[in-house]
Design a protein around this nucleic acid. Sequence first.
RNA 1: GCGCUCGUAGCUCAGUGGAUAGAGCAGAGGACUUCUAAUCCUAAGGUCGCAGGUUCGAAUCCUGCCGGGCGCGCCA
Length: 581
Amino acid sequence: MTDVVATKNLVETAVSAAMAQVLPAELAGGDPLVRRSEHADFQSNVALALAKQAKRPPREIAQAVADAIDAHAVSATTSGPGFLNLTVPDATLWERIGERVNADRLGIGTPLTGERMVIDYSAPNIAKEMHVGHLRTTIIGDALARILGFLGADVVRQNHLGDWGTQFGMLIQYIDEHPELPWRHQGGDVSTLDALYRAARAQFDADLGFADRARSRVVALQSGDAATLAVWRELVAESELAFQALYDRLGVLLTPADSAGESTYNLFLADVVEELVAAGIVVESDGALCVFFDDITGPDGDRVPLIVRKSDGGFGYAATDLATIRYRIRDLKATRILYVVDARQAMHFRMVFATARRAGWLTDDVHAVHVPFGTVLAADGRPFKTRSGGTVRLSELLDAAVGRARDVISEKAHGLAPDELEHVVQAAGIGAVKYADLSTSRTKDYTFDVDRMVSFTGNTGVYLQYAHVRTRSILAKLPEGAALAAVDTTLPLHPAERALALALDDFADTLADVADTLEPHRLCGYLFALAKAYTDFFESCPVLRAETAAQRGNRVALCRLTGRTLATGLHLLGIEAPQRL
RNA sequence: GCGCUCGUAGCUCAGUGGAUAGAGCAGAGGACUUCUAAUCCUAAGGUCGCAGGUUCGAAUCCUGCCGGGCGCGCCA
């Protein structure tokens, strides 16, 4: 595997070398501040940034750096108050194309090698259907898992299923009292389980006797009663089938092997609390065992606790989360732990991380990060309800998107066989939903609008899929052997070719940026810009009808590289890139 | 009350120290004997919530306000 050095890095090297010649030693080693520019290929702002420290006018510094730059590598001119406009020779860009098009993995390196990253995402609840509330964590988490893994990290996916809690007493008791109900072996149809849950809930709320029996059943479950546990296991297995069906449909990497639900940590809860007690980290308050934090207070000004053991002796989710983080550090040996969880739980994670730090589990060489995302809102700007009937099921949403995709594609498609058409319809519909979620800033509230989501114009998944298809369709029409031509680095670059080449060169930088910020929408923005650059190229640079064989060969390389970059980028977002559309 | 978060074009959003703040959608006009027009081009559209401050330079950093959302003891 060969990493290809990006043109931007070559420019940075050239500017740094020039800085070393004309600036005092203490300033010469600084960041050359090279950025993409509207006025040239790149620009450097060092002269403006360092003028004060260097006690020289910025224009003078810019001119000195420009004069010192190796003119064979980069041509530099000064502009405005002290900008340095940097342009690379055509041959340099063609060389990059030639290297990348023949490289494994597009010449992208694996800078995260050696890191073990645990990613906690999706976390649906057993015996309930997945709804829009699970959309963002599942899709964002999966994209991050793919991207970090691509960059060389050892990714450990963790699906923290909601597979434990008092609601199972209610559910199991209800099943026990209604043995005739058909909920087993539904083969991934969780709606019967969901109906069961709602029926049990209704009776729990209305029937005091049943509520008492349900509470007894909770005790039986927690104390390991064999018959109760057996039903519980069946419930979990049945739900996991349903989740897997949905993950498969969504193109999400999660499998049962990644499941590590709340119940996984039951055995460790007592030990975790004991350890915290022994360390003097928890104190008793109103009968509960709590951790307090000076900077976290409630409306009355009193400090708010993280309750690790309830006054009734039971363990809550805080204990589970503490046992979980301890396990991920001690046993999974994580160097970075990502919790892709709703932003509303920010304070909870602050407390959990702070506690883990006090306990000595979370050290400076491990990074625990809450990766928050905004609330899912309806088109009217109000949140989706979770408990009263207004919840949209995830499967319904996907059906709607795929249905719309089918309508549009059916009237456009030429010569797609029925099974291929159906595959394309699924890829477009599912991709539309995922792209809509991923392409907006993660931390903001997310307006969920089916019409916008499945609209196939503008900055959408289908636009990118279509751009990819246009690269494939040119390549499919090439005469025999034409795809194998080497890049001729002596040809002049058309402006659209130059813009495309520069965009292609940004891919590695973009991925590193996403790995750093954990914001997949930056990759979406990059791919959209790349697709537009390709479309410009497509409009103004004929490939099959190029003027010479050499020119055609170079443009074929651009098509191939663009196609592979788009397909790779979409794949890293968890979106399919069909060959035809 | 405290904390977190958001406020950018009619709408949905990019843009976290650089040049004239950008896309998409909607609306206006134009381009198909297609390497797939699911596309492209043109024009129009903004007191970057407000006010100070830091800086050669602020949508971006700091402070204070205004407005919205969310969170704050035994649910997860």
